[in-house]
Write a protein that binds this DNA or RNA. Sequence first.
DNA 1: CTGAAAGCGCTTACAG
DNA 2: CTGAAAGCGCTTACAG
Lengths: 326, 326
Amino acid sequence: MATTMAEVARRAGTSVAVVSYVLNDGPRPVAAETRARVLKAAEDLGYRRNRIAAALRSGSSGLVGVVLPDAVNPYFAALGRELEKALTAVGKLTVVANSAFDPARQSDAVEGFLAAQVDGVIVVSAGGDEDPVARARAADTPAVYLHHRPPGSAAVLVAPDNAAATVMAVEHLRSHGHERIAFLAGPDDHGPVGRRLAGWRAAATGGALLRSEFTRAAAARLTAGLIAENELPRALVVATDEQAIGVLAAACAAGVGVPGELALVGCDGTPDAEFTAPSLTVTAQPLSTMAGHAVRRLLGAPPEEERLVAELVRRRSCGCPQPQLQ
Amino acid sequence: MATTMAEVARRAGTSVAVVSYVLNDGPRPVAAETRARVLKAAEDLGYRRNRIAAALRSGSSGLVGVVLPDAVNPYFAALGRELEKALTAVGKLTVVANSAFDPARQSDAVEGFLAAQVDGVIVVSAGGDEDPVARARAADTPAVYLHHRPPGSAAVLVAPDNAAATVMAVEHLRSHGHERIAFLAGPDDHGPVGRRLAGWRAAATGGALLRSEFTRAAAARLTAGLIAENELPRALVVATDEQAIGVLAAACAAGVGVPGELALVGCDGTPDAEFTAPSLTVTAQPLSTMAGHAVRRLLGAPPEEERLVAELVRRRSCGCPQPQLQ
DNA sequence: CTGAAAGCGCTTACAG
DNA sequence: CTGAAAGCGCTTACAG
């Protein structure tokens, strides 16, 4: 059996109340001498606080639930990593679930989080009709969307200016002399990729609109088909790095030179993009800042002043010279 | 305030004990008619069980802690994803922490898990002197290592036959006519990469032993240096896919043809390896099976009969023809 | 088959 | 500054 506060109290010759006051630094003051005795007793007994018991009484479990569409996708992996970092920094434990882009699983995951009495929920939406953040809030649990909010939801969303990112990508390809610039979007026009598409549309490049699922495999298949039909664009902005990796793989497999025959810019800016072959020029989203904003909103902070904007990172795939590998 | 069992009991005209029996399907039988009334009342009130309260009483929190060295590394990302899947299948919630290859953080993470009264902990060790699994077991919490156990630990480890995987990789490169085959290892020879190295040594290829940290950046730097010094091997087995991705990036940046000038085989077999440029031939570890074994051991199952062995997946980087993109 | 009650290990008003 | 006690929402022997 694990040591309890009662045992610590007995050894320190005081009450559990005082032990709690010492270990929590409040809410009542404790004499320095008593305090030292309690600390020593806790140390001697190897006391570890039972957070489940504390949670039941205090109403705060110290758990935050995070639902991601797919933790293997480099963008979500990186976002998840940043969230875990930000959450750890504020003393929360990160509970994760993958929705596999399935709205039903996403709702199940949030339902499980609520039963576990999480202190908050962060969801990167998989789209669909359900609004799990609204549901969490209905259960008095703080919740925010990060990156993607389902269509129609009015819940809090932390996201960068996605349209601006695509505009930046288009302008960069133009600076390389490209006029017709295609765009590889997702299956539908909701969410962040919809915004990125809107930015591309506004830039009026006259290039083709391409679509694939959000997997490298799907993007690779599409690209292989385009190459076979001789319909590959000369310049292409790709909505996500995950898809861009698939495009690169297909181009390499078919012997199509990047950037020579196909100039490419990605719109996520994941760590993966630096070490593709060739390295991927991206409009890099401020993942760490986004995670920080999401966590602070969850903790009750007001909306941030700071705008979230992507930054152009020039690498090889657009036609710029290969930068030094770091 | 959330609905409690007491409210459900009142509405159903029965006691909280009976509500608990119904909702948990035991441990006492309940008359069909009473059962129906309880279910209806719970439904009407939108009752959601408070698992924190249940945990305090029953001793099972439904939480399992997972510590990974780096959830952005494709191997650990894939392993984490499979663990989450296996854990969800048995009704557990997955709490994650990243150690960033820092043994101290790893121990802190496990300490946090124990305070949260997790039902078990799975750690992919970052190496070092600490034995967090032993620590968890000392606190009566089931715990296992997956993939990597720190040197000197005698705790349960779920891992495939890593030496056999490298032998397989070497043999495959030999079948392409290579004799001297180099090996890119990690900074030290502990853990799974140590086993992979042992397999390569046993295969006595006479090739060079190379080393880098377990990041794509480090492997890319090493490779760029080798190319500059004109010391790049013709054939290379790389301990991890993460490093292989770095090698590929450096080769591409320097215009070194793969597999023409450098034939490559990776030893993890992550999903990422299928869409590198060129696609990476690997000895693919049975990640899903490994995750399943780890979870079952945690739940108290005896060691599995089934041996965990990697499977050779032929793709382009070794010199085989590029397979059809899936 | 059902219910009153103890108790899991904390936190926190309340009284002293 | 300190302590006895209530209570968070469950689960589960125990008695009926």
